[in-house]
């Protein structure tokens, strides 16, 4: 996972680089929580550009981060979501609380 913090906009961009399942969410959760607590961002963006796979474990992880960020007074956005990931996000209702910035052009 690549981490990028933009100071002017207080935006934390977390670029996910792996397939998201029960196994990988442990590590994603650990890094994300650490970075969020460190920067106290106004906005957190999960970038799905390199994510080819996500299952319901990813939904749990996103909802958990959403609660945490909300409690700290920030907002959560998603970006570069591909078709397969979009399908799961839509089904689980995550899209109702986390807006998507822009769609991935490839698939």
């Amino acid at each position: 996972m690549n981490v990028n913090f933009q100071i002017e906009t207080k935006t934390l961009v977390l670029q996910l680089t792996e397939e998201i399942d029960h196994h990988t969410t442990k590590e994603i959760r650990r890094i994300a929580d650490y970075e969020i607590e460190r920067y106290m961002p106004r906005k957190v963006v999960f970038d799905f550009h390199h994510v080819t796979f996500m299952d319901s474990a990813g939904i749990g992880m996103l909802l958990g981060r959403y609660k945490m960020i909300k409690m700290l007074g920030g907002s959560l956005e998603l970006s570069h979501v591909n078709q397969n990931v979009h399908k799961i996000l839509e089904m689980s209702g995550v899209l109702k609380i986390c807006p998507i910035q822009e769609y991935s052009k490839t698939n």
Partner: peptide, 14 residues
């Protein structure tokens, strides 16, 4: 407590 979404069977079925 595990931050699970409870969507497993629902996703399988759909």
């Amino acid at each position: 407590n595990l931050e699970r979404s409870g969507m497993g069977f629902t996703i399988m079925e759909s």
